[in-house]
Design a protein around this nucleic acid. Structure first.
Lengths: 341, 341
DNA sequence: CTGAAAGCGCTTACAG
DNA sequence: CTGAAAGCGCTTACAG
């Protein structure tokens, strides 16, 4: 019961033209007479003709497919980015193939290959946590446009889209300092994390500006910055002789673990210890007190990523100048760091 | 600086065979001699040969691409399903194209068309909220395998994968009844929602089984079942002369709104009013008291969906018998409906 | 302004 | 066991 799918050839026969003419009419080739063109277009419309993307892609080496590679889609931030990528890509006539690396670097290299094999026109990528060998990526870059977002690396010579990690953290810490806090702890990831490192720099910078001495005991690193780890590390911080009066976590989920543990020990938030997170996830307004956090505009990232990638794809120049785009964030101040009461 | 991409032709020239032989060797055609076959495979490996999917798909009308259509990817439940779809598809050698309808029915029909145009081998779909005109879907069904999941419709003759909506709600309500609750309110969606309707049936069934009279004032319908609406509707329920002693919300987010409002009015949860949600979202363990809720195994749905779709795609039979698969859920009992104290 | 022909990389009936 | 040839649906230099 398969439907008759219209092709150029069939329409050519119907109208008594050659397939070349039909093709050209549909592609608005300037040579075609207006009369012919309108006849062809009318028929195409009537038959609901849609070009076979595969034949077209096969012929022109263009598929209108964008590959998206992320560690995992399951976080609110990433799915917000992807939502906007889908929307923007669609508006430009592109479809999106998505793959998750789950922070597995062998898989990452493999995915890069299959993306190529599936003929993507370009790739939008957020790096795995431990991507050290960047050769596979450099190889891709020789063949197709590739743009990094969120988890990036300045070792890869391509356009990168990030938020103002350092400034965001700086603002968060300065906010705490302005509340009179002086013993500000930070919960961050171990090295190898671009985002964590930048946020840590912002932390250091703010303390320095306000002449607050760095206290190593208040700097906590972990490899898996989750809600559970947030709880555990809070215990550790509370066992210090000099307890912190504020805790900055570089993720919301760990910050929520912090608040839960503080509540468990009946430590008043924010009066005794203020808490600030990072991401403005949905959870930030579910936990009580509501969490002060940095809003990351995932939508903007997705939007700009697609825009720039499509520009690169459709550019006639071999390689456009690569640039790093920094998107501004906002500190959302909520109960967990209010000054009153 | 484009790299030389190996093709059958180039390898044929290198080895002194015809492209036909190369092709057959790589595809394990039985006619080819072991000797030839191993020589070809060795070269292919050395050159890192990967078939051009477009040429192949173009020739064989098979692309190894699966289309996934959902209302929105941004919920935890949907992204969990998609995560598993990606994983399972990949293991079977398929790539996944994702599109969001945002519950826009015109867009839904359009997406269906472009999916076809992009040559997907089959489609996995969760319906928009208001899909009434199912003709576009029936049309697709004539051409390609299509499986519905989560938001389904029994008017569409295809395989459907759902959770045991009715039983899940029944169990939730029976749990409340076993706690001694008799005035159990439900917050549900207006008609046209398959899931909501089924859950409502489970609610009715449980009350009936336990001889509890249906009280219309405790049955609340809304069109947009969000956290904010949960708050608003709780106000409405609290203004009743006969207040409920339990509230069942068919989504976690509304249930969280319920709890927040109850806390605002210093109504003890669960002592005065117990609360049960549906989804087991991350938020359910962030809100305090932690929310009792129905765990929906999104991963299982994704897994089974891919498995069945690929079976249909690779089946030689024109049409496999379509079936409805119901996946069992679990009620996760937490503080918001505990009996103690 | 239009058409005939080649070719993108692959598979597969046909022939030997 | 292997090869020559056709063809999937499209675009595009070449010719007129």
């Amino acid at each position: 019961m398969r439907q008759e799918i219209p092709t150029l050839k069939k329409m050519a026969k119907l109208l008594g033209y050659s397939t070349s003419t039909i093709s050209r009419a549909l592609n608005n080739h300037p040579d075609i007479s207006p009369n012919t063109s309108s006849k062809v277009k009318a028929l195409a419309k009537k038959l609901n003709y849609m070009p076979n993307i595969f034949a077209k892609g096969f012929r022109t080496q263009k598929t209108n497919i964008i590959g998206v590679i992320v560690p995992t889609i399951i976080t609110h931030f990433t799915s917000t980015i992807i939502k906007q990528i889908l929307l923007q890509a669609e508006q430009r006539g592109y479809k999106v193939i998505i793959s998750e690396t789950n922070n597995n670097i062998e898989k990452e290299a493999e995915i890069l290959q299959t993306m190529l094999q599936f003929g993507v026109d370009g790739i939008l990528m957020s790096l795995s946590k431990n991507t050290k060998n960047i050769n596979p990526i450099l190889n891709i870059l020789k063949q197709k446009p590739l743009i990094l977002f969120d988890k990036v690396s300045n070792k890869i010579p391509c356009t990168q889209i990030v938020i103002d990690e350092e400034e965001a953290a700086f603002n968060a810490i300065e906010h705490l300092i302005n509340l009179g806090r002086k013993k500000i702890a930070i919960i961050k990831e171990f090295e190898h994390s671009y985002n964590s490192e930048k946020r840590f720099q912002g932390y250091l910078k703010a303390l320095k500006k306000h002449n607050i001495a760095i206290d190593d005991k208040l700097i906590i690193s972990t490899d898996d910055i989750s809600l559970e780890k947030g709880k555990l590390l809070t215990n550790q911080l509370l066992s210090l002789k000099e307890k912190p009066d504020a805790i900055f976590s570089i993720t919301d989920s760990a910050a929520i673990g912090v608040i839960k543990t503080l509540k468990k020990f009946k430590i008043a938030v924010p009066q005794e210890i203020a808490v600030v997170g990072f991401s403005n996830s949905k959870n930030a307004t579910i936990i009580e007190p509501n969490l002060t956090t940095v809003d990351q505009p995932g939508g903007r990232i997705g939007e700009i990523a697609v825009k720039l990638l499509v520009e690169e794809i459709e550019s006639t120049k071999a390689v456009l100048a690569s640039k790093t785009i920094e998107i501004k964030t906002n500190l959302i101040i909520r109960e967990s760091s209010l000054s009153h009461s």
